[in-house]
Structures are given as structure tokens and as C-alpha cells.
Design a binder for these strands. Structure first.
Length: 639
RNA sequence: GCCGAUGUAGCUCAGUCGGUAGAGCAACUGAUUCGUAAUCAGUAGGUCAGCGGUUCAAAUCCGCUCAUCGGCUCCA
């Protein structure tokens, strides 16, 4: 056999004997030390194991354990090790699938009993044994038929189902084994179990087979793995930090809101500070929308059921709606705000000169969410959307979508979020013609491209009335939250027979855009609380400053300072209790108040205040007016 | 809705083998008048989520319901 030529990603080209494995080639080219963090390779663009032999001329790229792909391979391999450990320990466990995911991996098992936290420890212990035994991951290939009978003989029905459901043109499948455990798997994998340095099993949860709620519930074990122990510990620290930032906890500690069993699940009760924060956000939004040519409108909470039938909500959204009977008439409590907006449009004959019309409503909606999905402010049964419906001519769609995307971008910047964009296309259960769906999807796509916005596509994930663009913001811990969305809708204008008179004097059908910027104010507040860990920027803080007296004799002057600040529009509290200054400061810090104003002899004599910033910095003595202008300037910069 | 876990004072949590409930912090009262993250002392606070069952006796064992938490499905 003749030698083969290998081209490396640094551009160098070398010859090797036929049939050498990738690992051997890397070791001879870079030395075994340099090869250590490499756990897989990309050969002519295809990911392979290091143990695969090279039988033709190739271009080779090394996949490092620290790259996103390398980490994915490592975690996927750990999931196989976990599956082996589980089957070693427990009887009657059937394996299903076990992929790597964003922050780790999981494996789903069918098991008649349930896994407990103690079981996880036993599984981890067995995994450590498997790792120290350093079993190689061995790839083999089989025909579909062989593989089916192989997994049948091993009593693994889920694997058989997976193979049977492969596309018809797939003739062979690959299997990976390590230490007697065999799994159907595309690969690649790490060379051997001993490569694993740091892993942890995190929790057990139920999960439907193939994610379908009509299927059997399996038991999923989540875990994660990293190249080093330090990285694993960092990750665990982030989880702990997230727990500390939990908006449900901070909501109570900062006295922002409560959820109350007596009131009902999924219902938020805003306390004074939470309601103030919400008011600040809503006032900001109204101002920004008025600047951009939106009209503020308001519709009723309940509308007759016939209108919901007309809109399609009764047929497609009924299970999420609440209904109530008034004077023997059935009413639907609104789960969306569009209906009133349609009626506003229809209240007059519209000309093309009137378009676009942009109706903005801070609309409170009710949705009957399943009990299991409720989650503090993030997922409630009553929430308020910063909703708008834009009615425009088809040729105005592009401009309108682009300016919404600009508003999203501006708003995310104000709150300090980066974001990602997804385009979702027609779902199974939907209304409207194929042409309209195509037109709408094309308009969204075109606008994104015109604005140079990178996006992913989610096929079949649109709303029942139209395709949508979702914006997923990223918070301080890198977690993603769905907030803004733009949905294109040809169906509702049709159903409500909306029209405008064009330049030709004829009736034309307008197009509608549904859109939210922050999404639900409740969810957005939840995200904000966790993003800032409760330490809101000055412009958002429900309490911007608190006045602290050193002793009782400073109370009269403190009262003067407090009143001046309140009159200047500062959101201010006072703490004139007979407590030591350090005690008040500590409480102020825990309440995350941006400025604490200390009032003692010095300030009383010179008519000043001494602001202490939340970061502990003492600003020294200054006049009240000076303090107010510092505060106002920061607010103007959205600090 | 489904799988699993949990529910004890305002909060965080103890409570052994079934024998009628405890701590720290917070609160309240008093003393202290104090300069940048906790002054001291005292007082009060509980239908042990709810309902039912077993038992001489239930926070503890069993059943049901409700709620919460972690996921799945769904979603702003």
C-alpha cells in the first residue's frame, strides 16, 4: 500500500504509511504531550474518532477538548459511561438516548423503580471505577438488520425502534462499546474512559420518550463534565450564584412581590416596590413608543365568545383560555390583545395614507397555563404584554419589521442585554393559505437580512396565525430568555375583513404585525432581577436613596433633606431609627439601595449630605442639589 | 397535564424508635445616642400545608387534596 498525504490545518503537508490511525499521526507530528488535549479530529470536514485509520489523502483538523465540539464529545462519552454504570448497578433498566446538551449531558432510561439522590452517588462511584479502568471506546459497524437483532437479543427495545425509524437510505449503523457496554451511536467518542477528568451527576427528572407527551415517561439523569476539575467547580459556582439571584427569593427579600396560595397559583401580587419598578419600566415604554409613532390604546379584559370564534382563538387556543358568563352570554377573558385593536381599525374607513397604524397596549392577558410550567414571574397565568399591532400595506412590511428590530436592539441596549434571533416557520395546527405563509416568512427573513441580523431557523415553531421572529436575550449568567417577538399575520385581517382604500380607489387588505419588545412585563422583571442580582441601576431602582441619621438629634435636619429629595423627584426612603449607623448601612446594602445619605453633625452644620454608593465608595460631603444632579445624570444615561 | 422530590415560627433550618415543638436571624419592648456591612437585654410568635385513616398516643406511619421545587410537554 502506498503512503497517504495528510494536510494539517496549519497548512503543512506530510506523508504517512497507509492505515495509520489519527492518534498515531497526531502523536508523530506533534508529540504525545501536544496531542493530549485532542480528543477527536475532523477529517475532510467529518468528525471522527482518534482511533480511525486513514486510508486516503486527507485534510485533518484537531478537535481540542476545550472547544465547544470537543466538550460536546467529552460529555456525550460521559453519558455512555453513566449508562454503563446504571446498567451495571440496576436490573431491568432499558437505555434510550443520551446526548450532550448546552451545559452537560443527560441519559434517558426506562426503569420500573425511581432513581434517588443516593442512587446518583452510587452511579457516580461506579462511573469513577469505569474511568479508572480506562476502557477504550471501540467503534464497530453493522448492517441495520444485524443491529436490530443485536439489540433485540440484548433486550433493548428503544434502540430497535431508533434503528427502525432511520431513513430508508441508511444501510449501516455504528455502535460504540466500552467495557462491555454497547450503544447505538453516531460518535465520535473520546479514545478511552480514562480521558474523563471531571464530571458530576446533577439531578433526576422525568422526560417523555422522544419528547412526546403521549409517550411513556422515562427517567432522565442530568450531569455535566469538563476538561478540568477547576472548570467543573466554576460551573457549580455559577449554579449556586444563579440560586442566590433567583427572582423568587430576591422578590421576597427586596419586598417586590408575592405569590400567594390563597390568591391562586401563577398570580403575582406586586408590593409597593415591585409595583414602582414596574411603573418605571412601563412609563419608559410608553415614552419610547410615542416617540416612534405608536398610538396608545386600551381594550377590555373580556370579549364575547363569538369574537374569539371569528379570530380563530376559540378553535386554536381555547384550552389556554378562561371563560365567564355574563347575563347568559359567554365571554372569553383575553389571552391576547389583538381583538380590540382589530375593532379600532374597523371603526373607520381607512385610506392608504393612514397606514401604517401602530396600536400599542400594555395589555393584561390571562392564559390557563398547565400547573407544572408555572415559575414565579417568568411563567404566570396573568401577565401584561407590551403589545402592539401594526396594520400596514404589504409593501410597508419590510420597513416596519426593520424598525421593530431596531427598537428591540435599542431596548436591549438600555437594559444591558445581548440577544440571539430565531425565525420560526409554519406549525402543524395553523390557519391561512400557503401563499400568505410564504409571503410572510419571506418578509421576516428579508427584513433580518436587510438589518444584517444573524439568525437561526426553527421549522414549525410559528404561531397558529403566522411565522415569527423570536429574540432571546442573554443575561449576566449567559442564560437565554425569550422576550421580544415579531409575528406576521395575514389571517386576522382576512377574518375581520379589514381593508383600506388604495391610491387606485379600490379596497385592499392590510397586513398585520403582532409584536412585543420586553414581552411580558412580569417575565422581563424576573429576568432583570436575576440579571442585576437585585442591584438595579439607579434609573430603575424603586428606592434610589435612603437618608440615615447618625443620632436622634439629626432627625430634624434629616427630615429636611428627605423632603427636599422627595420634592426633587428622587425615590427616597429614610431610616431615622435609633440604631447605629453601621446597622443601617448593612440593611441598606442588603436592600441594594444605590445611595445611602449619611446625616451627622458635619452635614447638619454645613447643610450637606454624604452619599455612600452601593459599591461602598464614599463620595464625601456635597450639597443636596449637587447630589440630585448626579442622580439625574446617571438616570439619563440609563445607569 | 406527566415524572420525581419537598411542605415545621416572617426567613433559614433542627426535631432520634410514634410519647403533645426548638435554634439562629427577623419582629416587638426597654436600655443605649453611637460616623459607613450586625449594641445589649427581655418579650412574643406554631391548626407541624389541608382533610381523612391507623394507634392509648401522630410533625413523625398510611391515603387523598393543595401548593412549591427540579425536569418533560407547552409558552410571553
Amino acid at each position: 500500500m502506498k503512503d497517504i498525504t495528510v494536510k494539517f490545518s496549519d497548512g503543512s503537508v506530510e506523508s504517512y504509511p497507509y492505515g495509520k490511525t489519527v492518534m498515531e499521526i497526531i502523536a508523530s507530528r506533534f508529540g504525545s504531550d501536544a496531542a493530549a488535549p485532542v480528543i477527536a479530529a475532523r477529517i475532510n470536514g467529518k468528525m471522527v474518532d482518534l482511533s480511525s485509520p486513514l486510508e486516503e489523502d486527507v485534510t485533518i483538523e484537531l478537535v481540542d477538548i476545550n472547544s465547544a465540539e470537543g466538550l460536546g464529545i467529552l460529555r456525550h462519552s460521559i453519558s455512555h459511561i453513566m449508562a454503563q454504570a446504571v446498567q451495571d448497578i440496576f436490573e431491568d433498566v432499558h437505555v434510550t438516548i443520551g446526548p450532550s446538551i448546552e451545559d452537560g449531558f443527560y441519559y434517558d432510561f426506562e426503569y420500573s423503580d425511581t432513581f434517588t439522590p443516593e442512587d446518583l452517588e452510587r452511579i457516580e462511584a461506579r462511573m469513577r471505577e469505569i474511568i479508572s479502568e480506562d476502557h477504550p471506546f471501540v467503534r464497530t459497524e453493522m448492517s441495520r438488520k444485524e443491529a436490530v437483532s443485536f439489540f433485540e437479543s440484548r433486550g433493548e427495545p428503544y434502540k430497535v425502534e431508533l434503528i427502525n425509524d432511520l431513513p430508508g437510505d441508511v444501510s449501516d449503523v455504528s455502535l460504540y462499546s466500552q467495557g462491555g457496554f454497547v450503544d447505538l451511536c453516531r460518535g465520535p467518542h473520546i479514545p478511552s474512559t480514562g480521558v474523563v477528568r471531571a464530571f458530576k451527576l446533577l439531578n433526576v427528572a422525568g422526560a417523555y420518550w422522544r419528547g412526546d407527551e403521549s409517550n411513556k415517561m422515562l427517567q432522565r439523569i442530568y450531569g455535566t463534565g469538563f476538561a478540568t476539575q477547576e472548570e467543573l467547580e466554576d460551573y457549580i459556582r455559577v449554579i449556586e450564584e444563579a440560586k442566590k439571584r433567583d427572582h423568587r427569593r430576591l422578590g421576597r427579600e427586596l419586598d417586590l412581590f408575592q405569590m400567594n396560595d390563597e390568591a391562586g397559583p401563577g398570580l403575582v401580587i406586586f408590593h409597593p416596590k415591585g409595583a414602582l419598578l414596574r411603573t418605571i419600566i412601563e412609563d419608559w415604554e410608553k415614552k419610547e413608543h410615542l416617540k416612534r409613532g405608536y398610538d396608545i390604546v386600551m381594550g377590555p379584559q373580556i370579549l364575547k365568545v363569538d369574537l374569539w370564534k371569528k379570530s380563530g382563538h376559540f378553535d386554536h387556543y381555547r384550552e389556554n383560555m378562561y371563560f365567564t358568563e355574563v347575563d347568559e352570554q359567554l365571554y372569553g377573558i383575553k389571552p391576547m390583545n389583538c381583538l380590540s385593536h382589530m375593532l379600532i381599525y374597523k371603526s373607520k374607513i381607512r385610506s392608504y395614507r393612514d397606514l401604517p397604524l401602530r396600536y400599542f397596549e400594555l395589555g393584561t392577558v390571562h392564559r390557563h397555563e398547565k400547573t407544572g410550567v408555572l415559575h414565579g414571574l417568568m411563567r404566570a397565568r396573568q401577565f401584561t404584554q407590551d403589545d402592539a399591532h401594526i396594520l400596514c400595506a404589504p409593501d410597508q412590511l419590510n420597513t416596519e419589521i426593520r424598525s421593530i428590530a431596531d427598537l428591540v436592539d435599542y431596548s436591549m441596549g438600555v437594559f444591558g442585554f445581548s440577544y440571539e434571533v430565531e425565525l420560526s416557520t409554519r406549525p402543524q395546527d395553523s390557519i391561512g393559505s400557503d401563499e400568505d405563509w410564504e409571503l410572510a416568512t419571506g418578509a421576516l427573513k428579508q427584513a433580518l437580512e436587510d438589518n444584517n441580523i444573524a439568525y437561526d431557523t426553527n421549522p414549525g415553531d410559528g404561531a397558529f396565525y403566522g411565522p415569527k421572529i423570536d429574540f432571546k436575550l442573554k443575561d449576566a449568567l449567559g442564560r437565554k430568555w425569550q422576550c421580544a417577538t415579531i409575528q406576521c399575520d395575514f389571517a386576522l385581517p382576512e377574518r375581520f375583513d379589514l381593508s383600506y382604500i388604495g391610491p387606485d380607489g379600490e379596497k385592499h387588505r392590510p397586513v398585520m404585525l403582532h409584536r412585543v419588545i420586553l414581552g411580558a412585563i412580569e417575565r422581563f422583571m424576573g429576568v432583570l432581577i436575576e440579571h442585576y442580582a437585585g442591584a438595579f441601576p439607579v434609573w430603575l431602582s424603586p428606592v434610589q436613596a435612603s437618608v440615615f441619621t447618625v443620632t436622634d438629634k439629626h432627625i430634624p435636619y434629616g427630615e429636611t433633606v428627605y423632603n427636599q429629595l422627595i420634592n426633587a423627584g428622587v425615590r427616597c426612603e429614610k431610616d431615622f431609627r435609633n440604631e447605629k449607623l453601621g446597622y443601617k448601612i448593612r440593611e441598606g446594602q442588603m436592600q441594594k439601595i444605590p445611595y445611602m445619605l449619611v446625616i451627622g453633625d458635619r452635614e447638619m452644620e454645613s447643610g450637606t449630605v454624604s452619599p455612600r454608593q452601593r459599591d461602598g465608595k464614599n463620595l464625601g460631603s456635597m450639597g443636596i442639589r449637587e447630589f440630585v444632579s448626579i442622580l439625574n445624570e446617571r438616570c439619563e444615561r440609563y445607569e
